Amino acid sequence: MNYISLQVLRTATSNFSVNNKLGEGGYREVFKGELQDEKEIVVERLSANSAQGFNELKNDLVLTNKLKHKNLVQLLCVCLQEKLLVYEYMPNGSLDTTLIADPEKANQLDWTKRKGIISGIDRGLLYLHEDSRLKVIHRDLKPSNVLLNVDMNPKISDFGLSMLGTLSIVRPNDR
């Protein structure tokens, strides 16, 4: 795992400026940043007063560090001085904002691109469920947790609620 200093992340995000804030959830804030080498990043910061979020952050850290696939968002590094995770930046945002909030981007998604997004999500889930050495159940897959890179390729994100386990299919006659 790669580590990064708090000072580097403060510089990259203009001291976690509101202008660089991409969003926030129940227990974390997300900021866009740019490193000195001009690489764009996303910095996820656990809210200072959140006890609940620590478990989700820890889960996200462990799983994204161990899971590597082209359809999963990649963890780049962490900052141990504060609870900060650094991910690759996805310039086209989440699937829900692309399809709903940005009509111009939605119009760019013809049926071939939409099928490609669906296939990419499918490949990511297949990797999580069957092909990775860890068997992971995401438990929070939704359009806001599917991010789109510059080429509109999907990457599954947010493993905070995920769990390790085996998948079992219960058929009606097995009950």
Rank of each mutant, 00 (worst) to 15 (best):
Q7V: 13
Q7P: 00
Q7F: 05
Q7T: 12
V8E: 14
L9T: 07
R10H: 03
R10E: 12
T11M: 06
A12H: 03
T13G: 06
T13L: 04
T13R: 02
N15S: 13
N15P: 02
F16Q: 11
F16Y: 14
F16N: 03
S17N: 14
V18E: 13
V18K: 10
V18W: 00
V18T: 12
N19V: 10
N19L: 10
N19A: 13
N20K: 06
K21D: 01
K21V: 06
L22Q: 10
G23P: 11
G25M: 10
G25K: 01
R28A: 15
E29N: 13
V30D: 07
F31C: 04
F31E: 01
K32D: 03
G33Y: 02
G33H: 04
G33A: 09
E34I: 13
L35E: 03
D37S: 12
E38H: 09
E38N: 12
E38S: 12
K39D: 06
K39C: 05
K39E: 09
K39N: 14
K39V: 11
E40K: 14
E40W: 01
E40R: 11
I41W: 01
V42M: 02
V42P: 05
V42G: 02
V43D: 05
V43R: 03
E44L: 09
R45S: 07
L46F: 06
S47Q: 11
S50N: 07
S50L: 02
A51L: 12
A51N: 10
Q52H: 09
Q52S: 08
Q52F: 01
Q52R: 08
G53F: 08
G53I: 07
F54G: 00
F54N: 01
F54K: 13
N55L: 13
N55D: 13
L57P: 04
L57E: 05
L57M: 15
K58P: 00
D60E: 15
D60V: 00
L61N: 04
V62N: 09
V62R: 05
V62A: 09
N65H: 10
L67S: 04
L67Q: 05
H69T: 09
K70G: 12
K70D: 12
K70P: 10
N71Q: 11
N71G: 08
N71E: 02
L72Q: 03
V73M: 07
Q74N: 15
Q74I: 10
L76E: 14
L76W: 07
L76H: 01
C77T: 15
C77H: 05
V78P: 02
V78N: 09
V78G: 03
C79N: 13
L80C: 13
Q81C: 07
Q81D: 15
K83H: 11
L84A: 06
L84T: 04
L85R: 04
Y87V: 08
Y87A: 13
E88N: 11
E88V: 12
Y89W: 13
Y89R: 03
